[in-house]
Write a protein that binds this DNA or RNA. Structure first.
Length: 431
DNA sequence: TCTGGGGTCCTAGGACCC
DNA sequence: TCTGGGGTCCTAGGACCC
């Protein structure tokens, strides 16, 4: 058996933790640039705020219903996520826990009896809340996919289930599948849901569990679909995975806070994203061999706009902000056309290799790479430890000049809460 | 008339997830 | 006026190899 532990309305719960007056009050958290709603408290859901709606569309509803909104504060969420995961590791043993996302973890229960699972789930939920203040739901099933389903049903009826549901016997699994629409299953997105309904009249989980593996292979993305159908039948086909600490790709992309026309501003933004991506790269001791840059221009009648992108290969893998900046800015120069309003840009680092085992290039001029690595380490240490001036438009103390000074393109974050748990100056104060 | 049979590597694109 | 950001896996098809 496998369990999944999932934090309830995670971002909202994080915000509420430090403003207890908001307990039981409706709140929402917005995406970057204060664009759309990405987390809602139960009360906000009841008030009819939909997931993913643009902020400007629900603004008046929020005011009318007295719903408090927050800009997103990823530093806070990241730290609280770590606390929840650490609690699970302490309770269950590190080897059993697979962190799946910022607010979810799978737990391997394969060698445990099926009798006490509900009690175990309940004790996990209580302990995590006691130690971190975050409420979680626990779903248990013979496969990861059925555990996810159990979790979903536990959340839907919190009072009755006390946020814990175990699907261990066949009748319970059948009932659960029958009342779940295909689109609500883990692994069935919007596209497949539509296709299943329109072409084959498959509407619920039980129907999908009954199709042949050949059918799933042919119509639901090959082996992916086949695994999904097997999982629904209780045959484990997605096993627990080793903790993935090394990312294979690192991206930093943002919408601008307003329309941007000038090349100089776009270069500042790209430089800022490169610096951020390179930091992430160094934090996992990797170097990149591939760098891509894209900019997106506003286009009349198109929601997403028109993208221009290009990439280059680094013969000498690098995690040096200066080196990556140089390449990225050259790419922007060739991509940029004056005229259109740009609304978004991004940087992607790929082909990641361990920084320690970098292949020396044949054409390497014997650059003083070690000195530069030391410089990067020094910059990171200073930026991660020193407090920021709160009025600054910057997120770092030490930075490359190319990242600009005025930075009028920066995203909107009108209501970001304090980083209570990660910055000395922003510690909550008890009066 | 007839024109092999494997392999591997790479890339672009599609689908999904939170 | 205003619609997020960051990932993963898989497949198909082309280039190339023996």
């Amino acid at each position: 058996m496998k369990a999944i532990v999932d934090c309830n309305n995670f971002y909202c719960s994080c915000e509420r933790l430090f403003v207890p007056q908001l307990d039981r009050k409706p709140i929402v958290v917005l995406s970057n640039n204060d664009g759309c709603v990405i987390s809602r408290s139960d009360e906000a859901k009841t008030s009819g705020v939909q997931m993913g709606v643009p902020f400007f569309e629900v603004r008046s509803l929020l005011q009318q219903e007295g719903i408090t909104w927050f800009s997103s504060n990823y530093e806070l969420y990241g730290d609280l996520s770590w606390r929840v995961m650490e609690t699970l590791r302490l309770l269950m043993g590190e080897a059993r826990v697979e962190v799946y996302s910022v607010d979810e973890a799978f737990i391997d229960l394969d060698d445990m009896g099926t009798e006490a699972l509900a009690a175990l789930g309940l004790s996990i939920r209580e302990r995590v809340e006691q130690w971190t203040g975050i409420r979680v739901s626990v779903g248990v099933g013979p496969t990861k996919t059925l555990a996810k389903l159990a979790n979903r049903l536990a959340k839907k009826d919190k009072l009755r289930t006390r946020c814990v549901m175990v699907l261990s016997d066949l009748p319970a699994i059948e009932t659960a599948l029958r009342k779940t629409a295909v689109g609500d299953l883990w692994g069935i997105g919007r596209r497949y849901a539509r296709k299943l309904q329109e072409q084959w009249s498959i509407y619920d989980g039980w129907q999908l569990a009954s199709v042949s593996e050949e059918f799933a292979h042919a119509h639901l993305g090959g082996v992916v679909g086949k695994r999904l159908v097997r999982e629904l039948r209780g045959i484990p086909s997605k096993e627990m995975e080793e903790e993935r600490t090394q990312k294979k790709m690192i991206a930093t992309t943002r919408m601008f806070g307003r329309k941007v026309y000038a090349l100089t501003e776009i270069k500042e933004a790209i430089a800022t994203y490169v610096a951020r991506a390179a930091e992430k790269l160094r934090r996992q001791y990797s170097a990149a061999t591939e760098l891509s840059v894209f900019i997106i221009a506003h286009e009349e009648g198109s929601r997403f706009g028109k993208a221009y992108s290009d990439h280059c290969i680094l013969t000498n893998p690098s995690a040096d902000t200066g080196v990556l900046l140089h390449k990225a800015l050259a790419l922007v120069e060739t991509l940029y056309r004056s005229g259109p309003a740009y609304k978004k840009a991004g940087v992607l680092l790929g082909g990641l290799v361990p920084a320690s085992s970098r292949q020396a290039s044949l054409f390497d001029q014997g650059e003083a790479t070690d000195d530069r690595a030391g410089l990067m380490l020094a910059i990171d240490n200073i930026n991660f430890s020193l407090p920021l001036q709160s009025a600054s438009r910057h997120d770092s103390i030490l930075r490359f000049a190319a990242t600009g000074t005025n930075r009028a393109w920066k995203m909107k974050q009108a209501r970001r809460s304090a980083r209570y748990t990660t910055r000395w100056r922003e510690l909550p104060v008890v009066h």
